[in-house]
Design a protein around this nucleic acid. Sequence first.
DNA 1: TGGGACCATATGGGGGTCAATGGGATTTGG
DNA 2: CCAAATCCCATTGACCCCCATATGGTCCCA
Lengths: 146, 146
Amino acid sequence: MNRFLSHATNRIDAKGRVSVPSSFRGVLAKLDIRELYCFQDFVFPAISAGGPELLDRFERQIAGEDPFSPQANEMSLLIHGGGVFMKLDQEGRLMVTDFIRDFTGITNEVTFVGRADHFQLWAPQVFQEAQAAARQERRLRGLRPG
Amino acid sequence: MNRFLSHATNRIDAKGRVSVPSSFRGVLAKLDIRELYCFQDFVFPAISAGGPELLDRFERQIAGEDPFSPQANEMSLLIHGGGVFMKLDQEGRLMVTDFIRDFTGITNEVTFVGRADHFQLWAPQVFQEAQAAARQERRLRGLRPG
DNA sequence: TGGGACCATATGGGGGTCAATGGGATTTGG
DNA sequence: CCAAATCCCATTGACCCCCATATGGTCCCA
């Protein structure tokens, strides 16, 4: 597998660590990603995590605009001010810091959600509800993928 | 046969496995599908399963939109976060995980339902009712298939 | 036409392997 | 020098490979 897919929920231990699902670690290894760029999602109350090239992409996006524009300023506020680099420990676990807890509402469990080129950390309950809402909205609009 | 047709109900064993109907496995072999892309159906409480090209089709749909739009983000939440790759064991059985149980209400039996280019997993009772409801609705509208 | 051999599919379970988790020991940073 | 982060090892349980058994249908022949 070469992209992040599916979701899984893991427990946070007494030291505040949580195991990143094995399949996600496999993708990271395959893409040779050793350090995670984590940032606050623009839409949902979730932390997004991916390789450093994610940040590069965002910065290229900014570079395409007038560097003194309010839009560029705002974008930088989000991706730089709301972003951080993190590493996994030897067992593939991640420290769940206050940076993550405060933005997501995570307390003692984390739902990992694949998003193709990155993955996300959600509070389990919040993820369930957001997904149900997205499904409901699609139905109302009569849209279908494919 | 080169498409998924008809429906059949099989039992889940003590280890949580269920046999995929032989005719469906035959279609999978014919289409050279070795790994199943499974996702939560957008309308019914059923898991849909098909070849990886199903996911490709969804992703092409997303690619047509602004990648930073809430719509694209939402769509990805469903097809990436709500999708899984699964494999059959050597006897053609599938593990019925919580991912499947929680969404479908499946407990100890699975109804497999052919849908041409993919098939679905339903709780038997729920399938019966949904099919009956669909039939009823058609009758009220005076419509006939074909 | 009825019985029985034969075959394919569904089902049951032993046991190895690996991922998730828990916790002691050591290092690092302020 | 203390607290927190990281390393390292042990335990547990879920999943998967593999082989055995049950079940039901079809075909053949007397």
